[in-house]
């Protein structure tokens, strides 16, 4: 390996994801739901080394015999930064209260802001998202808002203090991949803050594509958890995310309209002028 390629490798290895001033060596954020077992979840996390794992809060059962919270024990064992979400919240007050409860339980200021506007598509309530984000930021949260790919919405989220924005690729859990590449690419072009694609990714190639377009990270869950082999798929997503990032930093060639021979034409045998 020559000096240039060593420097290139070093530059890539220092290419941390920076969110709210905190550095993460991975650009993959992984959800913790829907795995076949806690053991598979743990091994998927080990295989993919995500920057953060998403978690949530739900009502505690009324049974005195519910025993230990095994998920909590697993979180402590894995020791990966957690990103609590406000999944299932349908009003700003529900979001704010859930975020405050999450901050106390998980001892973190990070919050994945989810404010659902439609139960069928799980589309965020874009009209109330911005004010909710503002309130959370004023309360000291590091807000990562789950939102649509609408440019103005994302800009307004940045205006109220979001230092990163997480547009969806497609509705949560669908695995359809980026449904609106034009808007996502435009978003990347127009906004300078870190952008993470959250929701709707189904294949490692989806993750790779958005990273090639210049997105800063991806957040996914179902695509890994529901794969036949979740651990191998987690690893595949980690590699695809990293490959896409490397491709983006490397500067892709421009697509050409017609063929251009890659083998030199000069000295082509048997060639003669007509």
């Amino acid at each position: 390996m020559n000096m240039n390629s060593i420097k290139e490798q070093q530059a890539l290895s220092k290419d941390d994801l920076v969110l709210y001033g905190e550095h993460f060596s991975s650009r993959l954020l992984l959800g913790t739901s829907r795995y076949p077992s806690p053991q598979v979840l743990e091994e998927a996390v080990l295989a993919s080394q995500p920057a953060m794992i998403t978690v949530s809060l739900r009502r505690q059962g009324s049974s005195a015999e519910q025993g230990k919270n095994t998920f909590w024990e697993l979180l402590k064992k894995m020791s990966v930064p957690v990103l609590p979400n406000t999944a299932g919240c349908h009003s700003p007050q529900e979001v704010i209260t859930t975020a405050q409860m999450a901050r106390e339980v998980f001892e973190t200021d990070w919050i994945k802001l989810e404010l659902i506007g439609d139960d069928y598509t799980l589309q965020p309530d874009t009209l109330r998202l911005v004010d909710t984000a503002r309130t959370l930021i004023q309360d000291g949260f590091k807000v990562l808002p789950y939102c649509t790919e609408d440019l103005i919405l994302c800009q307004r989220l940045v205006d109220v203090g979001c230092q990163a924005v997480m547009p969806w690729a497609a509705p949560i859990g669908t695995g359809q991949g980026p449904l609106n590449p034009y808007a996502l690419k435009l978003l990347r072009e127009r906004l300078k803050v870190p952008l993470l694609v959250d929701a709707g990714l189904g294949l490692p190639s989806h993750a790779c594509s958005v990273m090639e377009w210049g997105f800063d990270g991806v957040l996914l869950n179902t695509a890994v958890a529901l794969a036949d082999q979740p651990i191998a798929m987690a690893k595949a997503f980690a590699m695809a995310t990293s490959a896409g990032r490397s491709a983006y930093l490397s500067g892709a060639m421009s697509a050409q309209a017609s063929a251009q021979a890659s083998t030199p034409l000069v000295g082509t045998p048997f060639w003669h002028q007509a």
Binding site: G31, T32, S33, R34, Y35, L41, T54, V55, S56, L57, R58, R59, Q60, N69, F71, W72, L75, P84, N85, A87, T98, M101, V105, F106, I172, G173, N221, T222
Partner: peptide, 10 residues
């Protein structure tokens, strides 16, 4: 009164 605990999340 709501009493809530950590669970998995996406």
């Amino acid at each position: 009164i709501e009493i809530i605990s950590p669970v998995t999340g996406g």
